[in-house]
Design a protein around this nucleic acid. Sequence first.
DNA 1: TTGAAAGCGCTAACAT
DNA 2: ATGTTAGCGCTTTCAA
Lengths: 399, 399
Amino acid sequence: MTEDSRAAGSPTLEDVAKAAGVSRATVSRVINGVRNVDPVIQAAVRDAVAVTGYTPNRAARSLVTRKADSIALVVSGAGDDPPPVAATAGPAASTSSATSAASAASAASATSAADSAGGSRNGGRQGAGFDGGVGSFMTEVFADPFFGRVVTGVVNFLRPRGIHPVLMFAETSLARDEVVSYLRQGSADGALVVSTHAEDPLPALITDAGLPAVLYARPARPVRISYVDLAHQDGARLAAERLLARGCRRIGTIAGPLDVPAGQDRLAGFRDTMARHGHPYVPVAGGEFTEESGAAAMERLLAEHPDLDGVFAANDLMAVGACQVLRERGRRVPDDVAVIGFDDSRAAASCRPPLTTVRQPVEDMAAEMARLLLDRLARPDRPVTSVIFEPTLVRRASA
Amino acid sequence: MTEDSRAAGSPTLEDVAKAAGVSRATVSRVINGVRNVDPVIQAAVRDAVAVTGYTPNRAARSLVTRKADSIALVVSGAGDDPPPVAATAGPAASTSSATSAASAASAASATSAADSAGGSRNGGRQGAGFDGGVGSFMTEVFADPFFGRVVTGVVNFLRPRGIHPVLMFAETSLARDEVVSYLRQGSADGALVVSTHAEDPLPALITDAGLPAVLYARPARPVRISYVDLAHQDGARLAAERLLARGCRRIGTIAGPLDVPAGQDRLAGFRDTMARHGHPYVPVAGGEFTEESGAAAMERLLAEHPDLDGVFAANDLMAVGACQVLRERGRRVPDDVAVIGFDDSRAAASCRPPLTTVRQPVEDMAAEMARLLLDRLARPDRPVTSVIFEPTLVRRASA
DNA sequence: TTGAAAGCGCTAACAT
DNA sequence: ATGTTAGCGCTTTCAA
């Protein structure tokens, strides 16, 4: 409508400058809130911005500021490590090769109508291709309420600061390289990584490349990298003390995977406290932090120690599975057997009966993790650090 | 170590060109796999890339290609709509103002040690500040297994294509504007939006801005935008037929929220099929697609119709809640009351008893949604379209 | 087939 | 306090 309707794409700084009768630099200053700008001119610029419908181009800005204003939120797993296939032995991976390496998928088979009228129908093909590769890993990740809490904490912290999280999954060697590559390209300013398994090579890969990152939980192998973590042993102590105070005397525990620090520490802390109270031997059954494994572990525990009157599960999911089995085996919770979980996840509250559990302030910890990363980005010279949170006991019905 | 250790940051095309003894243009061609490149020179360039450890700078590339190679994955909700506060009535929002609008948070209180030695301790402060604003929305989102499946489908499709998803939540007016702004800045090439509530203004906002997007599920109000969806009515029909075939004669249903198409359609489809089979009246209790609301609805249904022998819940979460209540009220599932859910989520399989349910191929649908968006990005002229998937019945123990 | 050169839109010295 | 100018690192005509 105005005289200014050239064919070009979205308006640029130049356009705004022209419209406001000032220079590009001035417009830039106004937009970035730099001081030393005449209020009158400021108003003029703002008007011009409004009139032209200007939006700064992020790529252009990033190119010069060397910041992407985004971070990678990566969920990392052990995963298979198939040896590199062939060619290109060099360290640098060209983006295009990674892109074209696509093995595609069932994209072609979809029936997509061109009209907007009635739309098309797509025969009920079952989830054939997609869950093959990484699907199972992601399914596991999302099955645990833990992940959602991390995202919540991170996003809530990042959002008011204008930083956006890019979601990445790194469960294979290839995927890990892509994460590193992504960071090296400057697509993200740093990484927040949640490792789901021990022996995860990603933290080392990232630090070796000199890239800024913060971990959720101490790495299984020592790596010079910042992290937030929970005082797992203290949490286990709280659980043991509660069980003992309640009068339980034949107490067993369902441990998490022992190759991950959280699993080790929770077991060690529990055993330690039990020992200090005169219980040198504690029946243990191992689980994998899943409901099913918790149920299975409970079965085993019960088979060997039918007279159990207290159980500490290393996380809520396993505690839920344990409760289910206990009920099926005719035990009342907590009257016959008291149960304590760990994490204070949604699962704990919605369990029947509601679970007494050790609270891990995941959202706060995730936010702190993000804060540490932003700190690091602001002052790259600062040394790595760690922040350890204290767990608390949440008393509900199960113990 | 080599002669080439200038102080500068990461190596650029220029550096590689120099090292390979060719021009920037040639290196660019090799890296992007453009034809017409002498094999010998290609090799030389690759070597130079390896030697220099070159990685293309994404911002620079984006600036000229006008593609970000990322998309916004946005979870959108109704949310409160506080009227705009003041000033700046214009349509264009400067990035800086949005950024500086940060009301900050409990960042300052964290105790962070500077040494990497022992790390510091953080007193067990409960999740105070973070869950206030958007926390509850995100908590809801993650509580539903649905979301994880969408992400799984999207990521699996996008990953081999070198596109990265940026996670965004748009449950307030401000958050919605930020999504639009983000897209307008070219930070993402398009949006994949999952609307959790009706009356969501985001789809319209996006299309009005001429930005490419695809929805999961038909919008409550008609908007000229592409989407994928499920034939919900057909799914409800499958459930009704199964219940009837099983011999159930006093059948009720737990409906989802009726302001969202999926809720409406599942109820309508169920009623319709029941009517066709001589059941003009079907007891209905409304739920909110959550386990708790499903339990509550079941209570109401049971109170009014104690002799019920079959229940169709509009999603698995509600079906799980219903099963729980049925068991508590002394009904055996499926012997006394048969129960059918909807979605075939994890919740269905892990329910006791395992839930017979209507399968919604969420992962496939999400992948298709991503495919539609990429299609659109490749050929912006193409008209909007829709792809409707057919549900299938998954028979387990509950019916 | 390769090189030279012109920008993409922005920020940040530097000059005024 | 504002304008001028020089790039940021890349792709892509256009010539050679």
